[in-house]
């Protein structure tokens, strides 16, 4: 079923919308949460919560991409859940991803007037737009979908070392871009 049709089901308050959405994008979104948290069960719970939120927000929302819409909610829920965990239980890819993303944090924001935190994603968008499709997909797969480095390397037929280099270079590029745009990384959510 097309996304627009599923959205229409939500707007008409037809509960079939939930099952259609789950069938179409539930798997990939649950995988994202499960990867981040290192737990299938936690991933399932995040998906369930996210489906509930989608039901409560459409209408009034009318998202163009349901995959992105559901995925963003699931991802935020997973990160929230990870934050709430005790240090002893913080397994999953979030630990690796945040360690890598430290490379992206500007050593200091530009001396220009800094952008507000909610512009961070917009700045990242602009930077993503400058990349080749291959690099852009690689970055998003790693840091949005949470794919493992060895999985990505295998999928591209390169060694993990080579892939890690490319990711390092991309992170360095993002860092430069954030610095140039005066972006600071804020605690508030986008």
């Amino acid at each position: 079923m097309e996304d627009s049709a599923i959205v229409e089901l939500f707007w008409s308050r037809n509960s079939q919308a939930i099952s259609e959405l789950q069938n179409k994008y539930g798997g990939v979104c649950q995988s994202v949460a499960a990867r981040l948290l290192g737990s299938v069960e936690d991933g399932q719970e995040c998906l369930n919560d996210a489906l509930h939120r989608v039901w409560n927000t459409i209408p009034p929302q009318r998202p163009r991409s349901l995959r992105a819409y559901l995925g963003k909610i699931v991802r935020n829920l997973a990160i929230d859940r990870w934050r709430e965990r005790s240090a002893q239980r913080r397994d999953g890819e979030v630990a690796s991803l945040t360690a890598e993303l430290e490379d992206c944090l500007p050593a200091a924001p530009s001396a220009e007037a800094v952008a507000q935190g909610n512009e961070t994603a917009a700045a990242i968008d602009r930077w993503l737009g400058t990349l080749s499709k291959e690099d852009r997909v690689l970055f998003v797969r790693r840091y949005w979908y949470g794919d493992r480095v060895d999985e990505l390397a295998k999928r591209r037929g390169v060694s993990p070392n080579n892939l890690a280099q490319r990711l390092f270079r991309l992170r360095s590029g993002l860092k430069r871009a954030l610095e140039q745009e005066g972006v600071i990384v804020c605690a508030n959510r986008v």
């Binding site: 991802r75 990160i79 945040t98 961070t120 990384v185 804020c186 986008v190």
Partner: peptide
């Protein structure tokens, strides 16, 4: 960096 991971969302 966790904030950045979240904002990448």
């Amino acid at each position: 960096s966790l904030n950045l991971l979240a904002q990448l969302g």
